[in-house]
Each structure stands twice: as structure tokens, then as C-alpha cells.
Amino acid sequence: MDALRNDRESLVVITGGLGRVATVLRPHLRAHHRLRLVDRAASAEPAPIEPGIDVHQADIGDPDAAYRAFDGADAIVHLAGDSNPWHGWDEVYAANVPPTETVLAAAAERGVPKVVLASSLHAVGEYNRPEYWPVSPQLEPRPCCPYGVTKVEVEALGRSHAERTGASVTCLRLGLTGWPLTERRYLGMWLSNDDAGRLFLAALRTPEPYGVHFGVSANTRNNWDTTSAQEALGYRPRDDSEIFAGSAGPPSGPVCRIFDDSETSGCEERP
């Protein structure tokens, strides 16, 4: 297993490269590596792409397009997909599972040594209850919605890829990333923009055979155990959602079973 070279010449290909999470990560990764962004969209909105970043408009679910996009890649960060927990099974499966299979197959053909897969806390959302806090990433998956189920499948595909090819695969179960923290229920799962950059850089540089880690900040009300990310990846989160506790409001509506019916699910003070 090889980690990404820690130099400005290494090439990181980001799928979903014009999306919300990629927009958060771009300045952090660009400071250390060359970037190629792959996305179905024709242009970035609202954040323009900085000079020197390669942009490919392509459907990453197309095997030929994926193979071309990964030419010369030292690492792949796979962010493309449907992250909406309200969407039904057919919709999120089609957007998340077959494209990941295509990405990993193309990565294998190209011999890409490092792959980072974006997973989600929704893969274990049913554990977001006081009796399980802090939730361990070593627990059996318990997805809370169809989106979470697809992320469990993505993780399984990543493990199979690592075992078959010898590539290093890291799955990051991301919390609230790239969204404003306006609701109290998200205080325990917030991932700041800066911590997101630290997390992905740490994952890219770590040659673990296969790993699954939580991606949240150093939140006072954290419900998710980041010990594995700290020990295996060297991730050092610095930010705390508590600065938003006074301004964050009540829920805007139902999400899925990652929260129960209580307004403060995941946010009450603990002794």
C-alpha cells in the first residue's frame, strides 16, 4: 500500500469536483497537490475555479470517461453521488453504487495506489442515540435511510477493491460538511471547512490497507468517536461547533432516523 506523495507534483483527481464538498476541500488540497476536477456540470457555481486546476466535464459513471479522467492519477477522492437522505432507494442507489463500482474498476486499471471514498454518518445513523454515544466506527453498520444503505455498500466495495488490488482505501463517514450550522441537532456532527481539509489531507497521506473513520470536528457535543481517525490517519480536528450553539435554531423538518423525534437529539448536555 502506498500513500500519496507529499509534494506538489502528485495528482489528485476529485470526482464530483464542482460540488459542495469538493468546493470546501479545493483550497486545502490545492495547496499541496495538483488537482483534476471531474464533474457532469459544465461550470462551477458559485465559486470559480482557480487557475492551474484541470477540469474535466464527464459522467464518472461511464467506464471510458472514468478511465480517461484517472490518467496519471496518484490518488482519487470520490465525492460524486447523491447525498440526499430524503431520496428513495432507486434514486440514491443509481447515483451512488454503480458509479462507485465504475470508479474503482477504472482506478484498478490505472493502478491508482490511493482512493478516498466519501461515506456518511448515515451508514450508522441508527446509533445516534444516547445509549451508544460516542458511537464507535467499529460497530456493525446500521443505516438510517436508503442513502445510508448505499454508503454501506460503497464501503464494502472499497474494502473489496483494497483486498483485490493492494491499493490503500480510506472511507470517511462525513458529518455536516459545507452547510451552515443553523440547527441545534447538527451540533454533534459538524465538520468545519478547515477540519475537512485536514481530514482529507491526512487520509491521502496514510497508507492504511483499508479503514473507515468518522469525519467530524472537535465538537463539545460530539457523538462520534474520532479516535481511529486520529490514531490511524493523524487527523487533528481543531474546530468546535459550540460557537454556533447560541444561534442554532430548532429543526426545520424531518430528516431520517438519524435523529429521533426530540428537537435536541444528539445535542443535549452530558454530565
Rank of each mutant, 00 (worst) to 15 (best):
P85T: 05
C145K: 01
F259N: 00
L233D: 08
S119H: 12
A69F: 01
P180W: 09
N84V: 10
A118P: 00
L29E: 09
P209T: 10
P146G: 02
D54T: 11
R129N: 06
A31Q: 04
V97S: 01
C144R: 00
M1C: 09
L172H: 08
E101L: 08
C171L: 05
S83N: 15
P51I: 09
P251Q: 11
P98D: 03
A218T: 00
E91A: 11
A44G: 04
Y210C: 07
D240Y: 07
Y93M: 03
L157F: 03
S160P: 00
L37K: 09
L25I: 10
M1K: 06
K151E: 04
S160M: 13
R270T: 11
Q138Y: 09
S262M: 05
L11N: 05
V135T: 01
E101M: 07
V97L: 02
I14T: 03
E208N: 13
G246A: 13
V115G: 10
G158P: 01
V169D: 03
G61D: 04
R68W: 01
A232W: 11
G61P: 00
R238C: 14
D62R: 02
D225V: 08
S265R: 08
R20W: 04
F214N: 02
T170D: 07
R184L: 14
R8V: 12
C267Y: 10
N219H: 06
R68F: 01
Y93H: 11
R164S: 12
L29T: 05
Y235H: 14
A118G: 08
R198Q: 02
P98Q: 00
S160E: 15
S43Q: 13
V55L: 15
V124Q: 15
E45H: 13
F70M: 13
P250D: 09
F200A: 02
G188R: 04
P209R: 14
T150A: 02
D240A: 09
T206H: 04
R142W: 14
T220M: 09
A123M: 06
C144D: 15
D261N: 11
Q138R: 14
R68S: 13
S136E: 06
A196F: 05
V115K: 08
P134S: 08
V135C: 02
D225F: 12
D261F: 12
A156V: 01
D62T: 03
R40I: 14
L117G: 07
A232F: 09
A47D: 13
H87N: 14
P27D: 09
G16L: 03
I258F: 13
A202M: 07
V13R: 01
R129L: 08
A94V: 01
P51D: 08
N84F: 12
S252I: 00
R198E: 01
N84Y: 11
D54A: 14
S247Y: 05
E263K: 10
Q230D: 12
F259I: 03
G178E: 07
F244H: 15
A105H: 11
E155T: 06
N128L: 10
